[in-house]
Structures are given as C-alpha cells and as structure tokens.
Design a protein around this nucleic acid. Structure first.
Length: 644
RNA sequence: GCCGGGGUAGCUCAGUCGGUAGAGCGACGCACUCGUAAUGCGUAGGUCACGGGUUCGAUUCCCGUCUCCGGCUCCA
C-alpha cells in the first residue's frame, strides 16, 4: 500500500502507508522539516505526527507564515494554561484561542492575577518550553471527556456544546496532552513545547465568559509568540511605535486638544492649533457638501422629549442619551444624540414637491451620547462629538442614483485626506425585526451593492446585520500601520418618514412618502481627527497643518525682515508664524521640526540683502539657501493648497 | 458598568520600609546675536488627585470617591 501526495507545486509523490506530515516535509528538505509546524491535508490543518491515510493534497505549514504562527500561538496558549494550573491547582480554565499577534487564555481564579503573578507564570512556561514536552493528540468519546474534566465546568460546557452542534450521541472530541496536562482542543499543535521559545506574556484583564456581562467574569492573560526572538522583538518594537502615534500624546505635544479632568469624562477642549485644524476640516466639509449638492441647515442642542418619542429614539436609543431635564411647566427636554429629527422638521416646514427631491440637508451638528465610562478613549470614543451629518430625502425611484452619489462622495472625501485603502461592510435586512416593504429593502440593498461594485470598493456582506429600519454601508479605512477604522456610514431609513408622516406631492398630484438616507462622512469630526493624527503620526499633510511654516530669523536684527516674509506668505494664504524667541537658530529649527511644521524658513543677512529665504521642507534634511521670496511663496502656497 | 494597573511641578518621571519631596524638559529673568535638530547662568513653581479613618505625625497604611490607562467579538 502506498499513498499518493500532491504538493502545492503540482507534483505528485508516492509515500509508504503510515507516512506522516513530518515525513513528507523531511523528504522535501531538511530546512523545510525544521521550519514545519503542521500540515494541511486537503486544506485541513493537522499535526505533523498524524499519519496521512489517503491520497491527498498536502501543504507544509511553516512557522514564518500567519497560519504557522496561529498554530504556535494556540500551542503557547496551552502552555499558558498548563503553567497557570501548575501554579494555581484550583483554577478553572475556559478558552484560549490564538488572536492577531498573539493569544490569550481565560481562567476562573480566586483572586485576579497581578503583574508579579504573570512573571511567575511566564517563568513556569519557560520551564515547560525548555523541557520540550511533546504534544500528543487523542480522540475520546464525549462522555469520557466529561468524566476527565469533571471538575472543570467550562470544559464540560464546551463538550456539551460540541454535542449540540454536531448531534448528540457517540460524538467524539479530541484532546491534546503534554505530560500530565491535557486540554480539550481541535488542534493542530506544534510537535513539542520547545518550538515556543520566543514567547512573552503581555497583560491580564477581566473578560466575561463567552463575552456576555451576565456571565461570570474570568481573568484573561494575553501573550504573544513568534518563530524567533528577532520576530518577537520586532513585534514589541512595533507596539512601541504604535504607542508613539497615540493621538492623546500627540495632541498634547502639538498643542491641539486636551482632556482636563475638571471638564468631564469623554469631553475634549480644543486649543488654538486644534481649533485651526478643525476650522480647516470644517471648511473643507462645507465645501465638499456644497460641491455634492447639499444645502445647510442648523438645529439646537436640545428638544422636547416628545420629539424623541416620535422619532423612536426614546424607545431604541435612550440608553445612549443624556438624562432628561424639565423646563417650564414640567415639559421634559432631552439633549440631542442625533440630528435626524431636526432635519425631518426642516423637511416638514413646508409642503414638498417631487420637483425638489432629492433634498440633501447637511449640518455639522454637535451631539451628546452617553457612553459607558469604561469604553471612553481619547477622541476616538467620546461623549460629545460633532457629526458631519446629512439627511437626504428622495423618491423611491431616485434611491439608486442617490446612494451611488453618496458613496462617490465618501470615497472622494476619504481619498482627499490621504486614505487609500478602503473596505466596506454592506449590512442587510435582519431576519426577525424590520420595518418597511420587502421590495424596497431589496431595491435599496441592491443599489448599495451596485454602488460598491461601481466605485470598486471591496466589501463584505454582513448578512442580517442591518438596523431594523434599513440597509447600510459602513466604509472602513486602513491606516499607515494597518489598523482598520470605521469612518463613514450611508444608512437607508424607511422608518422615520413613516413615523413623521413625511410626504411630497408626486407628478400625478398624489401624496407619496420619501425615503431618507442618513450619512456621516467623517463619522465624527473628533474621531476623524484622532485617526488622522495617528495615521500621519502627527505630521499632517501641509494643507491640514495648523502651522504650515515657521520663519526663523538668524539674529534679532532680522526680525523685521522675517515679519515681511511672513506677511508675504500670509497674503498668499499660508499659515505662518515668526519665531522671535531668544534662542539659537539650531534650537528654533529643532522646535519647528519636532512640532512637525511642514516648512522652515531661515532668514539672515544674505536674505535681507537679496530678498530671499532659506527653505527647508519637512522630511527633507537638507535646505535650499537663497530662494527668492516670491518663488518660495508660490511654491508653498501651491504645496499647501486645500484639495477644494 | 465590570476586572486589573495608575494619579507626585505645565510635561516625562524618580523618591518617601510613616517624620510635609527631587531630576530633566518647559516657563520666567539675565547674558549671548548666533546660517540649519538642544548656548550658558540663575529664579519661580507641588494641598504628592479628592474626602474620610488609623497615628504624636499620613504624600506613604486603611476605606470611599473622582479620574486616566489596558481589557471585556474573534466560537476547545
């Protein structure tokens, strides 16, 4: 007997019966065998030590691939559990999957782990790894597994879950064993613990069993594992680099905004530089809205509770709303968490004709949302935010064109801020609870899909994930270091027009109900700025920089000329300031560079005489001397011009 | 909200096994007037987050509050 194995390059090889993945790897090459952590047999990951019974396509999974690291991290999670149970025999262990860049394991223990505990656990893991214990797979009947894990309630629950999902009775589960430690696991695993030397525990945290806060809270330990010390160090280094981009830290360094404790959680104040950044972004927002045919409306921060009752927010959104207040004779008011009811009232302020539609209302509206204290995070999750919010009222016939326009708008806007890597989620009708007409849902959903295809935005369909009142598109971007952020949304709404009994007069003089499209392009101005700052690591593109250029007079006899230079730039629309502080030239330049100013202009005796400047642009560590002033003004005005 | 870890000068941090605190940067003053990433000297600046308790004495120990950081989706 022999098995025929097809390798990824298409070649076929014969192997004797009982051949293992490890044998196949060894037969191809010693280096491959050394790097192998598992195999894929007909696409299914398996242990290297398992015999390959039938003819199949085999691919060796090596440690330097994502699939390989995934397996290593899964194995590292086992070792973590093993170490914890060694140290805390009474601990109950729950689940321990690999995640992006690492792994975790959840435990129920008497007292939460301290940082010292983590050191001790990591030391025990190092011993297990040094002992190079082999991972051994075993398949046993579910009832036997329940007996084996009789004092491990989470494992019992998992075993019973396997029963439910795969049909009760006669079900088998696999377990992995290394020495005295055994864990329920689908596998595969690395051959032995010795493969996990580049490993580090990172932190502990509370986490609810199965992510549900009604369940007991477990103690989660996070760790990371890589194929080599070098890769581990590179990862730790990347984390440090990411920390340097933290918009909260950069916000302070660049004097953009702050979160004073006196103010309140989740609330920011904007300093002059941040105020300028907001102005530039808000000016841009107004301009592009105008360019895409939107008109501007405005609304107050509070409204009668009855309005929120009509809109449905008190029924569906009240947990995110600030508590009510009473005015006059017991009239209840609420602070707005959204702008939509106001824009609806603008629509209702007069009888509408089909000739006016689509009607696109836009507002940079400050809204307030109650977020749980634990989820607040800098500008990225706040309790007071400014939405570049719009509400478009269309006829049914116009929906498709209108959605395409909105997507075009969003993509144009994100591109002009330098984001190029988009992904979208298309959320479709929920199964059970929804309003409106089925064919309208289909029309709108298809229109959203067509728009995505036409705009060439890669997307996934989030089946049934839509709101009850209509389908939507969420647009995500990837930032400079690969993180994914949700930015824009385009949300169709069949419900609000119904609730507010919106109408327009159609050509046949009959009354029709419009459809609404909610859309936020930045999401929130605050959050958008947070993402921008992190994406650019504070070095905002010239058109966005609050200070675009600094003039450095060489000595104070050049201050007057420096003022003339600044005036010339200002006249051309460049945001410039003169550094007249009593410092050396080197220090003033260093200061401008560390504050990420896009241009530094040094002026000295030669420049006064020749009416020129020394010009140094950000990212360039050389300078150009004696550039004629007019030429420099023209160059920077062009380089720093806003896209619209 | 829940779990863990923090809160000391404007910022970054050290320190106090209970005897009211220190550095660097920044700010301010003086000198220097300088050509592309830190000139020198000096001065000021702290209710050690807030409230209570223990103590002869609390920034330090205990309790509570506020606040910040990390985590709470990724199906053995």
């Amino acid at each position: 007997m022999a098995v025929q194995i097809t390798l990824p390059d298409g070649s076929d090889r014969e192997y004797p019966d009982g051949v293992t993945g490890a044998d196949v790897a060894a037969s191809i090459g010693a280096r491959l065998a050394k790097a192998a952590v598992a195999v894929k047999v007909d696409g299914e990951p398996r242990d290297l030590s398992r015999a390959i019974e039938a003819d199949s396509a085999v691919e060796i999974v090596t440690e330097n691939t994502e699939a390989g690291r995934h397996i290593m991290r899964h194995s590292a999670a086992h070792v973590l559990a093993q170490a914890v149970l060694d140290r805390y025999p009474e601990a109950k262990f729950a689940v321990g999957p690999p995640i992006e860049d690492g792994f975790y394991y959840d435990f129920e223990v008497e007292t939460p782990f301290t940082p010292d505990d983590l050191d001790s656990i990591e030391a025990r893991m190092a011993e297990i790894i040094a002992a190079d214990q082999p991972f051994e797979r075993e398949v046993i009947a579910a009832p036997d597994a329940e007996a084996m894990f009789h004092d491990q309630p989470f494992k019992i629950e998992i075993i019973q879950g396997v029963d439910e999902s795969e049909g009760a009775g006669g079900t088998e589960v696999s377990i992995y064993r290394n020495l005295e430690f055994a864990d329920l696991c689908r596998g595969p695993h690395v051959p032995s613990t010795g493969r996990l030397s580049a490993m580090k525990l990172l932190r502990s945290a509370g986490a609810y069993w199965r992510g549900d806060e009604n369940n007991p809270q477990l103690q989660r330990i996070y760790g990371t594992a890589w194929e080599s010390k070098k890769e581990l160090d590179a990862f730790l280094n990347r984390r440090e680099e990411a920390a340097k981009r933290d918009h909260r830290k950069l916000g302070r360094e660049l004097d953009l905004y702050s979160f004073p404790q006196e103010l309140g959680s989740g609330l920011a104040i904007w300093h002059p530089n941040g105020g300028m950044l907001r102005k530039v972004i808000e000016d841009y927002s107004r301009q592009i809205h105008e360019d895409f045919g939107f008109v501007f409306v405005n609304s107050p921060h509070v409204a009668k509770a009855k309005l929120w009752q009509t809109s449905g927010h008190l029924d569906f959104y009240s947990e995110n709303m600030y508590p009510g207040m009473e005015l006059d004779e017991g009239e209840a008011y609420r602070v707005k968490p959204m702008n939509c009811p106001f824009h609806v009232l603008v629509y209702k302020s007069q009888a509408r004709s089909y000739r006016e539609l689509p009607l696109r209302f836009s507002e940079l509206g400050a809204v307030y949302r109650y977020e749980r204290s634990g989820v607040l995070h800098g500008l990225l999750r706040v309790r007071g935010l400014t939405m570049d919010d719009s509400h478009t009222f269309t006829t049914r016939e116009q929906i498709a064109d209108e959605l395409a326009t909105h997507l075009d708008f969003v993509v144009t806007l994100l591109s002009e801020f330098g984001f190029t890597d988009f992904e979208a989620d298309l959320s479709t009708r929920p199964e059970d609870k929804w309003v409106g007409e089925l064919d309208l849902w289909e029309t709108a959903t298809n229109a959203l899909r067509d728009a995505l295809v036409k705009a060439e935005v890669p997307f996934q369909i989030a089946e049934g994930e839509g709101a009850f009142y209509g389908p939507k598109i969420d647009v995500h971007i990837r930032d400079a270091i690969g993180r994914r952020w949700q930015m824009s949304t385009i949300q169709v709404d069949f419900s609000l027009p119904e609730r507010f009994e919106l109408e327009y007069t159609a050509p046949g003089n009959d009354r029709q109900r419009p459809v609404m499209i909610h859309s936020a392009k930045f999401g929130s101005v605050e959050r958008f700025i947070g993402v921008l700052v992190e994406h650019y690591a504070g070095a905002l593109p010239g058109w966005l920089s609050p200070i675009q250029a600094t003039v450095v007079p060489v000595a104070d006899r050049h201050d007057d000329y420096a003022g003339e230079v600044a005036a010339a730039f200002r006249a051309a629309g460049v945001r410039i300031h003169v550094d007249t502080t009593d410092e050396t030239v080197g220090e003033k330049i260093r200061r401008a560079i560390t504050h990420k100013h896009p241009a530094v202009l040094v002026v000295g005796d030669n420049d006064v005489e020749r009416h020129s400047v020394g010009l140094r642009l950000r990212g360039d560590d050389t300078e150009r001397r004696g550039v004629p002033l007019e030429a420099a003004v023209e160059e920077l005005a062009e380089a720093f011009a806003a896209p619209r």
